[in-house]
């Protein structure tokens, strides 16, 4: 599937660039971390299916299996950019 890069927006006051929703950032839309999709883009497993297994190291250094760790509780799983920047 070809995903279209969203480059809408342009320079605004100061060293900033505004995107199509009016968010200001130092990078122009379509560059650096600011490469966002326009139109269709993949959003992973569908509603109604089981969340695929996630086994990863957590912030305490422990290897964690998400489905085992939640111990039968409902959960929210957030994929975000970074805790660093």
């Amino acid at each position: 599937m070809g995903i279209e890069l969203d480059t809408r927006g342009g320079p605004t006051s100061g060293p900033y660039y505004e995107d199509f929703e009016g968010f200001n950032m130092p990078e122009p839309p379509g560059h650096g971390s600011r490469r966002i999709p326009r139109g269709e883009f993949p959003t992973g497993p569908e509603v109604g299916t089981r969340l695929p297994d996630i086994v990863a190291t957590d912030h305490t250094g422990r290897q964690l299996d998400l489905h085992a760790d939640r111990n039968g509780q409902p959960a929210v799983v957030v994929f975000y950019r970074s805790a660093v920047w």
Binding site: D19, T43, R70, V77, F79
Partner: peptide, 30 residues
């Protein structure tokens, strides 16, 4: 930057079934 996801969230029930998901085009929105 390589390795970033299209950011989004999944909500799962007690059985691990996805009951809702939220993805926006703009990573400025969560």
């Amino acid at each position: 930057w390589y390795g970033l996801p299209f950011p989004g969230s999944y909500v799962i029930d007690a059985d691990g079934i996805i009951v809702a998901k939220f993805f926006e085009h703009n990573f400025a929105i969560r």
